[in-house]
């Protein structure tokens, strides 16, 4: 890989924000180091945030506060996550391998790059890696690619499982920006590719994710994380569904459905969910919700199957959430 400067940041370094702005941030490194080996990322300077103090999970009335540097594994197995936010536990444990989960951090999980064969191969055209070179996936291998929110310049998918559960839970992301903490609702963290696919998210240079704030409601009674993939472990989702329900006398009191593997970001439509508040928690309504949630879905050849697959997956996930085994 390309030679680079390496700095290990301390809390004092954060006040100026200069190092963060001029460096690529290194946390667990499970994605960044791969990208550097492939030559996809060639930073001149790495700022290792591993010694910063965002390493705790704190409980409060507002909900659980997850430090950005807590590992995915420690998060999944945290007692309060298991008891109050089981959908998050299940999503994290469906991801990658135990080795990766032991190393990867929560902040890093949010900021992993999107998934695409052509993005990872520097000999290929890719608008995300090299804006303006074209998208090789649209007419190439796109079985793993997006069906929602795509653009003519990019059809890559966000690869995270954890983020799909966080989207469903409507978590908030706490970001240190110029010495101040700002709060970003989860659905505004990631973005769709549009004509700027090189941008995966809405953070600004110098921003640092410090925490993830989970809301008080964890949907511990009715939840499901359903991941459909090409093998039973260590595979990205072809399609995944985080489903959370609150049911009162057979009626939907609250419903959350976030999809993974179908878009450049976790896919969730609040207005569609709201339509079903007060309606019967039935397969018919789940089917109807699925139809609305993926309205406008478009395949690119080898990923056409995702359109019907995701519908089936949504209904299955909601029924599993409704009737926990």
């Amino acid at each position: 890989m390309k030679p680079f400067q390496y700095t290990r940041l301390s809390t004092e370094d954060l006040s100026s924000g200069t190092t963060l702005r001029d460096s690529t941030i290194l946390a667990g490194g499970t994605n960044l180091v791969d990208l550097m080996k492939y030559g996809v990322e060639e930073p001149d300077s790495l700022a290792d945030i591993g010694k910063l103090p965002y390493t705790q999970i704190e409980e409060s009335d507002k909900g659980l506060l997850l430090g950005a540097l807590v590992t995915n594994a420690d998060t999944a197995y945290h007692a309060a996550v298991k008891s109050t936010y089981p959908v998050l536990n299940k999503a994290i444990l469906a991801a990658a391998s135990s080795q990766l989960r032991n190393r990867a951090t929560n902040g890093g999980n949010l900021l992993q790059r999107t998934r695409c064969y052509y993005f990872y191969d520097t000999t290929m055209p890719c608008n995300k890696r090299e804006p303006g070179t074209g998208c090789a996936a649209i007419k190439g291998f796109n079985r793993i690619h997006a069906i929602l929110g795509t653009s003519a310049s990019c059809i890559a998918t966000h690869p995270s499982d954890m983020c799909v559960a966080l989207a469903a839970l409507e978590a908030k992301v706490l970001v240190l920006r110029k010495g101040e903490t700002i709060v970003i609702p989860f659905d505004q963290l990631h973005r769709l590719p549009g004509d700027q696919p090189e941008k995966d998210h809405n953070l600004e240079p110098g921003d640092l994710i410090t925490h993830i704030q989970l809301p008080a409601e964890g949907f511990s009674e009715h939840f499901e994380y359903l991941k459909i993939r090409d093998r039973e472990s260590y595979a990205f989702a072809l399609v995944s569904v985080a489903a959370c329900l609150k049911v009162s006398e057979g009626k939907i009191a609250d419903i959350r459905v976030a999809l993974g593997g179908v878009a450049h970001k976790p896919w969730k439509l609040k207005e569609v969910e709201k339509d079903f508040f007060g309606k019967e928690a039935s397969t018919e309504n789940f089917q109807s919700l699925a139809e609305q949630l993926i309205q406008g879905a478009q395949g690119f050849g080898t990923n056409d199957f995702k359109i019907s697959l995701v519908k089936g997956a949504i209904v299955r996930a909601l029924n599993n959430a409704l009737n926990p085994s």
Binding site: Y117, Y120, T123, M124, A136, G140, I144, A235
Partner: peptide, 12 residues
């Protein structure tokens, strides 16, 4: 189109 193996890694 390229004669290239696109999944030359253990992730894909």
């Amino acid at each position: 189109r390229y004669g290239r193996v696109m999944n030359a890694n253990f992730a894909e």
